[in-house]
Amino acid sequence: MNEITLLSVISLGALGTIAAVILYMVAQKFKVIEDPRIDIVADKLPGANCGGCGYAGCRALAEEIVRKESLDGMSCPPGGNDVMKDIAAVLGLEATEQDPTIAVVRCNGSHENSPPKVRYEGAMTCAFAHSLFAGTGGCPQGCLGCGDCVVSCDFDAIYMDEQTGLPVVKDNCVSCGACVKACPRNIIEIRKRGKKDRRIFVSCINKEKGGVSRKNCKVACIGCGKCVKECNFEAIVFENNLAYIDYNKCTLCRKCPPVCPTGAIHELNFPPRKPRPETKTEPAQA
C-alpha cells in the first residue's frame, strides 16, 4: 500500500514539475514586452469598450495614447473630461477641454404627426425596413421605428417610446456614437449637450420640397427659411429645403423655435416661455 502511495506521489510530482518547466519556458519565449503605462492608462478608462473614441476598445485607445504620447484629438465620450484629465496627469500631458456631447434624434414623425399609410411586417430591424420601403408614414428620411438604435446602445441610454414610435435619448447617454452608426437613415446626430442640457435643433432631416414633406408629416421642416432670417448669429444653415442649426454657433437665444410654422425646431430643457398668443408652436417635447 505504501509503495503505491509513494509511487503516486513521485510520479505526479514529476509530472507537475515537468509541466511547470514547460509552462515557464513557453511563457518566457512568448513574453510580450509592453509599456507599463498602457496598463495604467487602461485602468483609468471606463472599460466600457463602446468604441466612442474611434478605437476598437479601451485598451486600443490606451495603446494609442501611450504610443503617440499626446492627447490631441483623443477623447473618451463616456469618461468625459475628468478621465482625460486623469490620464493627462499620469502621463504628464495636457488634455484639451471638450464640450460634453449627447445623441439627438432628429425626427418627430410620431404616429400622430405622420400617420401610418402602410403596415410593416417582418424582422424588426431598421436596416431591412429601410431597404424595403419608405416607412409606414411615407417619409423616405424619417424614423422607421424598428429600434436598431436601441439594440445598438450598450448603455441603456435610448428607448422606444411606445406611444410615438420614436426613440428617446436618456440623459445618461455618453455619446459613443453606436446609434449614429446603427441608424440607416442618419437621423441621430451627436450634438453639444449645451449649458444646463439646453439644446435647440431642427428635428427633421427631410430634404424633399415643402409640400411633399408636409404631406407625409405634420412637423416636417418645409424649408421656408423663416428661422434663417430670424437668427442673428448665422447659426442656421439652409440647404436642400432643410434648415440645420450649427451647435457651435447657436447661442440658445430661443428666437427661432416660435417662428417655425410646423414646429420642427425643438428646444429642450428650457424654462417655459411666457405665453405669447401669436405663436402657433407647441412646446417641444423632451
Binding site: P116, V118, Y120, G122
Partner: peptide, 8 residues
Amino acid sequence: MSLLTVSG
C-alpha cells in the same frame, strides 16, 4: 379598407 401590409 385596412392598411396595406408591406413585408419582404
